[in-house]
């Protein structure tokens, strides 16, 4: 973003990468795939790079409002300095925080999740599912991230991105507004779970196994980690792939 600004250019959209997308090795691949999609359709975009910082979401959910607002205000300063108007992000937590909680602190942007971007591109005919891997007939199920689904009522966009594949889409028993959490939210990602009789991602695995899907579509880097751990726990790594919506789109288009 700094480079573009120095050249006096204003990108169409800012890609907010998020901490997981920046540092988590698995999520970095999703980040690169989102970039590939943006490049493929010719949308000019920028990232903040080292000027980006945590949105403050995990701090806020864990009760540290101070830390959240410190992060939020610092981020708003950076975003406003670059006169950012529109943001796309690959993380439902960043999406929710910037979209819903930044306005109250003076940060007003149009924020979309990458699944919504993909849906728009499909609707506009700019993205298809050709020239790459065929998902035809494959059993795919979609896991709703809490902060995209229940949190913000985005249920259809990610499903649209899958419908174009001509695959065998199956829903899990608990889906959409009844979707079961992967177990990472509310700060759980960063701590051991409380005492119980099983982990939440293992509970979710039962739904996945029951659906008989061979591909689990995710739309959140934290769900990605949890679901992959769940697949490992069941020793199903050979049979079940967990892929982000962006990765599936990239593969289907051979990008």
């Amino acid at each position: 973003m700094a480079e573009m600004a120095a050249e006096g250019k204003q990108p169409e959209i800012l890609f907010w990468v998020g901490c997981a997308g920046s540092f988590d090795e698995r999520a970095q691949r999703i980040t690169r795939d989102i970039c590939k999609i943006l490049n493929h359709v010719g949308i000019s975009f920028a990232v903040l790079g080292t000027e980006e910082s945590c949105t403050g979401d995990p701090a806020k959910r864990a009760g540290n409002e101070f830390l959240f607002q410190m992060q939020a205000m610092a981020n708003i300063q950076v975003l406003d300095a670059y006169e950012v108007k529109k943001i796309v992000t690959g993380c439902p937590h960043c999406f929710n925080t910037i979209k819903n909680e930044y306005p109250g602190l003076g940060g007003n942007y149009e924020v979309i999740h990458h699944s919504q971007l993909i849906q728009q591109l499909i609707d506009e005919g700019k993205l298809k599912a050709e020239g790459g891997e065929s998902f035809k007939g494959k059993k795919i199920t979609y896991h709703d991230p809490c902060y995209l689904g229940r949190g913000n009522n985005v249920y259809e966009a990610p499903r649209k991105a899958l419908e174009i594949l001509d695959a065998d889409l199956v829903e899990m028993k608990r889906c959409k507004s009844n979707g079961l959490c992967c177990g990472a939210g509310g700060g759980q990602m960063f701590k051991e779970p409380e005492k119980g009789n099983k982990d939440i991602n293992v509970e979710r695995m039962a739904d996945i196994l029951e659906s008989k899907a061979t591909v689990v579509a995710a739309a959140c880097p934290f769900c990605m980690t949890m679901l992959r751990d769940g697949v490992k726990h069941e020793n199903k790594e050979q049979e079940i792939q967990v892929l982000d919506i962006a990765e599936i789109t990239v593969r289907a288009n051979g990008l």
Binding site: C146, R150, G151, S177, C181, A184, G185, G186, Q188, I200
Partner: peptide
Amino acid sequence: LWACTTCNACVE
């Protein structure tokens, strides 16, 4: 308190 994932399933 610390077992909550803030998933909003209860609210829904």
